[in-house]
Nucleic acid binder design. Structure first.
Lengths: 234, 234
DNA sequence: TACTGTGAAACGGTTCACAGCC
DNA sequence: GGCTGTGAACCGTTTCACAGTA
């Protein structure tokens, strides 16, 4: 949807040629990245179930894809499997987290402490995944100055200094549609690097800012279409 | 991801051959359907801004795609444009809603009245989009028996009879990951036709049930990857 | 002139099939 | 035997380019 700049391929630095090549050598389709997240989810489950290894066909079956797809996806990033064995779960978890960048800690801010915002603040899985919400913003004086789930809520006017002070990297927008673009602009000005937008609008941002949009109505519409047309598409 | 059964093409009924052919003649890629939702969103904005018509290139620009893409997408479903003019906004809204099936009213249930569930119950846009949440379910006696946003909360044990009684068609799952599969099974047993799953697990369901998954951690992971790899993919 | 609808070409992701390895 | 990694074939989507229409 946005032109992807080709990644540097002719790296002249004498890098270790085999084993995990970390900066993806080839430009990676975003659908591959989203499957990586799903692999990670299943790997966590596998570990919890006491499994030590998993094969590409097992992983594929769990997700409704094929073994070849799993192997191809992982091959974008390196050689993580063991012929005759499969993938060691713990090892692959580590690799995928490194690929996604979730082995480090990310600092996140939330703008808009309404219903959705509050749910996001209370969502426990973010911290486990490497994402820490360190500040929230709103205009409503009834919430400004307080804390929710240990996260301080500031007045929106203080966004820029606080984002800079905490070196916040990612922003989540959960404000009404009409305000989303200006909030996004503010976040960009403050130096944020990526945005998850829950407002039902298409944001226009500099190409250098990563953007993911989540629209709940859109999701239900997909479902309605599938049901109405009974062809079981997913 | 799931095999799509070919839609009937040889319709023998003497249907009006030109103009809007409603049941998609060709099998429609799901990415096209998701763009339809986005077109709809932009069309609503356009109408609110007082526009009467919009061209494929304007629509495309708004969404970060091309004019050709917009036209090709719409061409799956019929001939909605007017050469030299573009698309009449109101008209196209009507058409897309009919295609998506959101011109009718859908009845929805929510299982899991935790943080996420409560946010969903309070989300105002569902009803505007044609989706009405008519019942919610939980196990917690502190919420069971009450109402949230006018939606009654029942004990989970009463799911099947109540879903049947209200002819509820769609379900939203907002329970912890460990319980999601069994909730999904219950919903299927009760006769639900489609599910939006907010729990971070891959559900396994009969092919006849439509499924959409939303995982907030996954969304943030996409963002982290984009930022960490600075290639501005979306 | 302005714009749609659509074959045809180009592109990119998926699937296949097999060499290589444990 | 079981499984990975990967070039090559395949297939579906996107882009192009233009005929057709108001």
């Amino acid at each position: 949807m946005r032109p992807q700049v080709p990644n540097f391929t002719g790296n002249s630095v004498p890098s270790p040629k085999n084993k995990p090549l970390n900066p993806p050598a080839r430009d990676v389709p975003s659908v591959v990245v989203s499957r990586l997240s799903l692999y990670l989810r299943e790997l966590h489950h596998a570990v919890r179930d006491g499994r030590a290894t998993i094969s590409s066909s097992q992983l594929g079956k769990l997700l409704g894809t094929t073994d070849a797809q799993v192997r191809k996806d992982l091959a974008y990033f390196g050689h993580f499997g063991h012929p005759g064995i499969g993938y060691r779960c713990e090892e692959l978890i580590t690799e995928i987290r490194r690929i996604l960048g979730t082995d480090r800690q990310w600092t996140v801010t939330l703008v808009g402490v309404g219903n959705m915002g509050r749910a996001l603040l209370r969502y426990k899985r973010f911290s486990a995944g490497g994402f820490q919400i360190v500040a929230a913003f709103d205009l409503d004086p009834r919430v400004v100055g307080g804390q929710i789930e240990g996260v301080p809520v500031y007045d929106f006017s203080r966004l820029t200094p606080i984002v800079r002070q905490h070196h916040i990297q990612l922003g989540m927008i959960a404000v009404p549609a009409t305000q989303a673009q200006q909030v996004a602009d503010q976040l960009v000005t403050a130096g944020i690097e990526g945005i998850v937008n829950f407002a039902p609008v298409t944001l226009s941002l500099p190409k250098s800012i990563a953007l993911v949009g989540v629209d709940l109505t859109t999701e239900l519409e997909q479902l309605a279409f599938s049901v109405a047309n009974r062809s079981g598409s997913r």
